[in-house]
């Protein structure tokens, strides 16, 4: 059984409503994760505000993906607290429950269901009852068909709708995964390196899309492409060796001496 922080049972994860009265939708507090003694996350503290667009940057191995793994239930932290709104303790939920509660994720390495068509990939991702009997007797209604068509249009894969997803190019797979995210209508989108493998034009469109999603959704983007980050960033958080090194607007970050030393410095140099 799933209970929220006060011990009240929650029967349907789909119906979980995060309590965001304090304006924060995601709390990550004192979280540490170690792999064979190596601390991938080290007392990490991070607060994501409801409706904001946040960029996470940091060198390879800084712990960005691990942070997403912790939030989505893939990795259990050794210590710390992670909650969705004030009340929903994410550490009590499994991956599927977290997804249904409204936290969606795009993986760093795009992973789509290769044997299924583009259309079917979106269909499976649609928000709704994900139980066995619901799937067995599921029929797409007109509204859902329209929604899928709309998403296919947004991600520019209408032509490819019946292609097996495995045949898409890397960039198209990225788009498909973003489409799958949209279909799930999550409150929070965790987007790990969305523009890797995309052309300049595609990158631009992704930036537009993510910016337009913020507000109604909270969006957390991890990206190495600094031009891209600059184009969408409002608040940027810099991770370094598993902890937060700095946080602020892009210009604040760029002038932060510590950041310049450990991160931007090496890139500019």
């Amino acid at each position: 059984m799933i209970v929220d922080k006060t011990g009240t049972p929650i029967t349907e994860t789909e119906n979980i409503q995060p309590d965001t009265r304090h304006g924060v939708i995601l709390y990550v507090e004192d979280v540490s994760v170690s792999f064979d003694g190596f601390k991938a996350l080290n007392d990490m503290n991070l607060y994501i505000n409801d409706g904001e667009l946040r960029c996470l940057i940091g060198a390879n191995g800084a712990g960005k993906t691990t942070l997403m793994d912790v939030i989505t239930g893939k990795t259990r932290p050794d210590t710390g607290k992670v909650s969705f709104g004030q009340q929903v303790d994410l550490l009590q939920l499994d991956e599927a429950e977290i997804a249904n509660a409204g936290i969606g994720r795009k993986f760093q390495k795009p992973t789509v269901f290769e044997q299924l068509s583009v259309f079917e990939n979106i269909e499976l991702s649609l928000k709704g009852n994900k139980g066995i009997w619901a799937s067995l007797f599921h029929k797409l209604n007109g509204e859902q068909n329209d929604r899928i068509a709309e998403i296919l249009h947004t991600i520019n894969l209408i032509q490819e709708r019946n292609y097996p997803a495995g045949r898409l190019s890397h960039g198209q797979k990225q788009w498909l995964e973003i489409g799958m995210l949209l279909a799930a209508k999550p409150r929070v989108l965790l987007v790990d390196e969305p523009v890797a493998g995309m052309t300049g034009q595609e990158t631009e469109r992704t930036a537009e899309l993510l910016t337009s999603l913020a507000g109604e959704h909270s969006v957390v983007v991890v990206e190495h492409d600094m031009a891209f980050v600059r184009s969408i960033a409002r608040t940027v958080t810099v991770l370094h060796q598993g902890s937060v090194l700095a946080e602020g607007t892009m210009s604040e970050i760029q002038s932060n001496p510590e950041v310049i030393q450990v991160y931007l410095g090496e890139e500019q140099g």
């Binding site: 893939k74 290769e114 299924l116 799930a184």
Partner: peptide, 19 residues
Amino acid sequence: RVVTAIRDAENRVRFVGYK
């Protein structure tokens, strides 16, 4: 289709919300 997805990428299926 869910079952096929499980066959090909079981872990990914979890993040779409299926058990």
